[in-house]
């Protein structure tokens, strides 16, 4: 069957110019080029097959990101089906996460305004982004690298805006913890002072 010329033209006009953006997103999700190549190809094939489901003029990039992410998650799931059960964590209150700013609390005495962030090398920051668990990495990539508004990210991830907020918070906190640990390991920052709980745990261990 031959497709209608308008479908072909619309797909060429709206979807194909997004190939670089989808490739970039796929690369950041998957972390390696071979997988990104396959992801982008799958994404465009699926987009073409379900082009009727796309409403012309709406956010094409978000729609393609949604498809790309679904393809990625399915391939991830296949890879770990026999080894790991997907865990569902309750999303904590974002306000609580913001206040329990672990690294800020740890470093505020020594470096209250976080000047040490400027000494963390780019490679280490990018590596830490790649190490983020996928549910944090995708939120982080969409907000901090693609600059998408929370509402659009919600569409891509199929979650409410409140959940986007909480994942973005947690992703950044995660990244901060990771990079602070690095800063300590290379001597940019002093080792954190032990909190009362930890001191108590050590005491208990020693008493045994």
């Amino acid at each position: 069957m031959t497709e209608s010329p308008s479908k072909d033209a619309a797909f060429a006009r709206e979807a194909l110019p997004e190939m670089d953006a989808v490739y970039r997103f796929a690369l950041r999700l998957a972390g390696d080029r071979d997988r990104a190549d396959d992801l982008v190809q799958d994404t465009f094939l699926r987009a073409w097959r379900s082009w009727d489901a796309y409403t012309s003029g709406t956010k094409i990039r978000s729609w393609l990101f949604t498809i790309c992410r679904n393809v990625f998650l399915r391939s991830e799931e296949r890879a770990r089906r026999h080894t790991e059960v997907v865990r569902r964590e309750a999303e904590p209150d974002p306000g609580q996460v913001a206040l329990e700013a672990g690294v800020f609390r740890t470093t505020r005495e020594h470096d209250p305004e976080g000047a040490f962030w400027n000494e963390v090398v780019d490679d280490e920051i990018l590596a830490a982004i790649e190490r983020l668990p996928v549910e944090f990495r995708e939120a982080f990539v969409l907000v901090d690298m693609e600059g998408l508004p929370y509402a659009e990210i919600g569409q891509v991830l199929s979650v409410p805006v409140g959940t986007v907020k909480s994942r973005v918070f947690r992703a950044r906190r995660h990244l901060q913890q990771d990079l602070h640990a690095y800063a300590v390991s290379v001597g940019i920052m002093p080792p954190p002072a032990r909190g009362p709980q930890e001191t108590q745990a050590i005491r208990e261990r020693e008493a045994r």
Partner: peptide, 20 residues
């Protein structure tokens, strides 16, 4: 200031290595 400095560091790292 702390959160802004973190954000600036991430922006710098990301800008320096745009995906191909």
């Amino acid at each position: 200031r702390f959160e802004s400095a973190f954000r600036a560091a991430v922006e710098r790292a990301v800008a320096g290595r745009d995906a191909p």
